[in-house]
C-alpha cells in the first residue's frame, strides 16, 4: 500500500523553511509528493487489490533514493533522500488485511551555504484493507478494495517525523490475468495540523500496468515471471498553511511516470523502477525532483 515514509523529509523541509528562506519551503511540496510509495502491491509505486490469504504474512522491504537539484537566484538547492520502508501485512480473513509500515529515512539538504543531514525513524503507518468485490475466472481476476489508514507521529518532530496524526483513504481496483495486470487507485491524504504548520491535503490517481515478458508460455514447471512495468501517477497538492496563513509557494500538480521491471516467484518478488516527473505545475518556485529510484523485495511466509 501507499505510504508517506517521506514524512521525515517533509517535516525536515518545513523546519528548514521556517528557519531560513521562503523559496526552500517550496521544496517541501515536491519532497512530500515523492514520499508516498507502495508497500505491498505487485506494482512498484502504487497499490494492488490482490488478496492476502487468511492467517498469512507478507513482508516487504523497499528502498528509495530521491535526488533533486537546481539553482535559485544563483544559490544551489539540493536534496538527496535515502529511505527504507519495512512493511508487514497480515490476512485477518481472506478479504480483510492489516498492514504496518516502519520507515527509516536519511535526508541531506543543501541550500546555499546551509547544509543539514537528518536521519532516524519516521512516522509509522497502520492501515486496513477490505475487499468488497471479487470476480474470478480461470487465470483471471478482478478485485476492488477500499482501504483506510492513519499515520502516527512516531518520528522525531521536525527531524524524522511530521508531528501530526494524519489520515488517508483510497480505493483500489485490480484486473489481473496471467499475461498482464492493471492496478488503479484513487487516494486522499487528510493532513492535520502540527504546531503551527498544516501540510496540504493530497489527492492522487495512480495506475500500474505490468506485462509478462518471460516466459512467453506458462508451463507447470515455471519458476517465475518477469514483468515489464509502466506506472502513471497524477498528484494534486493543496497549499500548506503556516501559522494560519496560506503558503503561496506550496500546492500544485504533478504527473509521474515509473518504468520498471519485476521478477515474481512463489515465495518472493523483486522489483526495480525509476520514478520520473513528466509534468510539474507547482505553485511558486518549489524544488522539483530529478528522479527517484525504487527497489524492493517482497516475501510471503
Amino acid at each position: 500500500m501507499d505510504f508517506s515514509p517521506g514524512t521525515a523529509s517533509e517535516v525536515f523541509t518545513l523546519r528548514f523553511n521556517r528557519k531560513h528562506s521562503r523559496p526552500v519551503s517550496l521544496s517541501l511540496l515536491l519532497v512530500s509528493l515523492l514520499i508516498g510509495q507502495p508497500v505491498l502491491a505487485a506494482p512498484i509505486a502504487t497499490n494492488t487489490a490482490l488478496p492476502l490469504s487468511k492467517h498469512e504474512f507478507i513482508f516487504r522491504e523497499q528502498f528509495s533514493f530521491l535526488h533533486a537539484r537546481d539553482d535559485l537566484s544563483g544559490s544551489k538547492r539540493e536534496i538527496t533522500r535515502f529511505e527504507s520502508r519495512s512493511v508487514l501485512g497480515y490476512g485477518l480473513t481472506p478479504k480483510w488485511a492489516i498492514f504496518g509500515v516502519l520507515p527509516i529515512a536519511q535526508v541531506k539538504r543543501e541550500f546555499g551555504i546551509n547544509r543539514t543531514k537528518q536521519s532516524g525513524l519516521g512516522d509509522t503507518s497502520l492501515f486496513t484493507r477490505y475487499e468488497i468485490y471479487q470476480a474470478d475466472k480461470p487465470g483471471r481476476t478482478f478485485r476492488i478494495a477500499p482501504y483506510f489508514g492513519v499515520r502516527a507521529p512516531t518520528g522525531r518532530d521536525g527531524k524524522t517525523g511530521d508531528g501530526s496524526t494524519d489520515f488517508f483513504s483510497g480505493l483500489i481496483s485490480t484486473l489481473a490475468t496471467t499475461q498482464w495486470v492493471l492496478d488503479s487507485q484513487i487516494r486522499f491524504d487528510l493532513n492535520r495540523k502540527a504546531d503551527s504548520f498544516k501540510r496540504g491535503n493530497v489527492t492522487r490517481l495512480e495506475s500500474s500496468f505490468q506485462y509478462r515478458l518471460s516466459p512467453k508460455q506458462v508451463t507447470i514447471n515455471v519458476k517465475g515471471f518477469i514483468f515489464g512495468v509502466l506506472e502513471l501517477g497524477a498528484f494534486h497538492y493543496e497549499r500548506n498553511q503556516i501559522m494560519g496563513l496560506t503558503d503561496p509557494n506550496s500546492g500544485g500538480f504533478q504527473l509521474f511516470l515509473t518504468p520498471g521491471v519485476q521478477y515474481a516467484t512463489q515465495r518472493w518478488i523483486v522489483d526495480l523502477g525509476v520514478k520520473i516527473p513528466v509534468v510539474s505545475r507547482l505553485n511558486g518556485n518549489a524544488l522539483e525532483p530529478d528522479y527517484e529510484i525504487l527497489t524492493s523485495l517482497r516475501i510471503n511466509f
Binding site: P51, Q134, T141, A176, V222, Q266, N300
Partner: peptide
C-alpha cells in the same frame, strides 16, 4: 479461478 501469478498461488500450494 482467480490465480494469476506464481506469487498468488504460493499460499495455496
Amino acid at each position: 479461478d482467480g490465480i494469476t501469478c506464481p506469487f498468488c498461488v504460493a499460499t495455496s500450494v
